[in-house]
Write a protein that binds this DNA or RNA. Structure first.
Length: 461
RNA sequence: GGCCGAGUGGCAGAGUGGCUAUGCACCGGAUUGCAAAUCCGUGUACAUCGGUUCGAUUCCGGUCUCGGCCUCCA
């Protein structure tokens, strides 16, 4: 039985989908003006695990994750670079897909882009105008917050307090200081679309309301995103959507992942202490493979609602753990089975991935010890890993997969050096044997002599 | 100022009203020509002050510290 923490009532309660046959999920995706950093990667990874779990539990799941490809940050960045907006967003989206693939994420079922849904947004804004929840002023269309009694339910904010604490000067055309923009005008040299209110572009929040409603209906199960989106983004989404469709209640469950810190400090551009996923992944396929899964495991080692301090040493730690798991798994080839361990149970407890990881460790231990049922333990290990989106490679490629530098120097002679060393050891010529070991080590290759007389190798970098 | 979250052993990080995970690191041992890997063993920690209780790290309250949000900024 799946239990999830719902931000709406700040409680962990049993998840009951609107339709047992079809679970529907929407997650806020990236604004594509720059490479994603680890802070962006967390919700991607966390909700990917949720997606995998839901697929395991329910016959059909539709997962929608949008791409925001029109936004003032994008406009500014494109102008700075003297680049077309479309070129910037396409390039960024390609890199985004490359990054998250390395992080082992499944593709969402639908990945709608804001610019493809301007018409849907205009329709929704019209619905709000007709019903009196919005008004137009000075070429803007604004949502009128006082028109909705229980505004602030998600973020638990009192409207009067918000107005009192506002730091930003209120635009003169707003009827109420809390009102927010649905549509705003574009200058002649700015990107814009024709609308009943003149040429302009959508406000920030409307795209998610329009696209989630379009693909999942006015009522759906889960809406996820980073904790920072609770206010104002998600609060305003709720307001818009519920008012546009008064008979529906929009998302039933609101899930939010916690913040990231970086190397013990607040992530900030001025400190320059945030890592992009791209730089962490490194250059070659091998680095990408190692780093991708290591970053993923590092993130899943902390519960998704807890704050997470992202450190490189934490990634190294995760790498070591993956080495251990891959070693236990070996190269045995078998069908994925259903996990009979507590991993599903742990994940059903509000995605308790740290507990799932601990169970993986225990399984790994029982494989290493070589108790009865080793094959079962391996199967469970594999099954658990696939729920977590880990151990997606073969052990051989994990340990021996070629690196860019290796292929450059054409190092296909590792096996023959090992054979030479085996001969030397047979002659008890340990000086020669050790010098071969050392020369391989200098190339980043570690040899392990097995009890049965064979020698295996793996790369350490 | 308002609202929200966090504070666990050297580190990371779960969890629980009493039996106190897990991993890494450290130390000791086994194994090994060396090494690597693996195995065995060793660690009663839960910010602080009160309260409730037979008993609290776990519940309640105060305090301290840290972090976040407070309208176009993920």
């Amino acid at each position: 039985m799946l239990h999830l923490y719902n931000t709406l009532n700040r409680k962990k309660v049993e998840f009951v989908p609107l339709d047992e046959e079809h679970v529907r999920v929407y997650v806020c995706g990236p604004t594509v003006y720059d490479h994603i950093h680890v802070g962006n990667a967390r919700p991607i990874i966390v909700f990917d695990v949720l997606y995998r779990l839901l697929q395991h539990l329910y016959p059909r799941v539709t997962y929608v994750r949008n791409i925001t490809d029109i936004d003032d940050k994008i406009i500014v960045r494109a102008a700075e670079r003297g680049e077309e907006i479309g070129a910037l967003t396409e390039r960024t989206i390609r890199q985004f897909h490359h990054d998250i693939e390395a992080l082992g994420t499944l593709k969402p079922d639908i990945e709608p882009r804001a610019t493809d849904h301007i018409h849907d947004m205009i329709k929704m804004i019209n619905l709000l105008l007709i019903q009196g929840f919005a008004y137009s002023a000075e070429q803007h269309v604004l949502f009128h917050v006082p028109a909705l009694q229980d505004y602030g339910r998600l973020s638990r904010r009192d409207r009067d307090d918000m107005v009192a604490g506002a730091r930003v000067e209120v635009a003169p055309y707003k009827k109420d200081p809390a009102d927010f923009v649905l549509w705003k005008p574009s200058m002649d040299d700015q990107v814009g679309w024709n609308s009943p209110w003149g040429r302009g572009r959508p406000g920030w929040h409307i795209e998610c309301s329009a696209m989630s409603t379009k693909y999942l209906g006015p009522d759906f199960d889960i809406h996820g995103g980073g904790e920072d989106l609770i206010f104002p983004h998600h609060e305003n989404e709720i307001a818009q959507s519920q008012c546009a469709h008064p008979d529906s209640s929009f998302a039933q469950w609101w899930l939010h992942n916690g913040y990231l810190r970086s190397e013990g400090k607040k992530m900030s551009k001025s400190l320059g202490n945030f890592y992009t996923v791209k730089e962490l992944l490194g250059a070659g396929e091998r680095e990408k493979m190692w780093r991708g899964e290591s970053i993923r495991l590092m993130m899943l080692s902390t519960h998704y609602r807890q704050p997470l301090d992202f450190t490189k040493s934490g990634v190294d730690n995760a790498k070591k753990k993956l080495d251990r798991w891959y070693r236990a798994l070996g190269d045995v080839d078998f069908e994925d089975g259903l996990s009979t361990t507590g991993i599903v149970e742990a994940l059903c407890d509000d995605l308790n991935t740290p507990r799932a990881v601990a169970i993986m460790d225990a399984l790994c231990g029982s494989v290493s010890v070589g108790r009865d049922g080793v094959l079962d333990a391996k199967r469970d290990l594999r099954a658990g890993a696939s729920l977590l989106g880990l151990l997606q490679y073969s052990s051989e490629s994990w340990f021996q997969g070629g690196s860019v530098s290796e292929s450059r120097e054409g190092g296909g002679d590792i096996e023959s050096l090992i054979a030479q060393r085996l001969v030397a050891r047979g002659d008890r010529d340990f000086d020669t044997a050790d010098s071969i070991r050392q020369s391989l080590l200098d190339r980043g290759v570690v040899l392990e002599d097995k009890p049965d007389g064979t020698t295996v190798w793996r790369r350490i970098s």
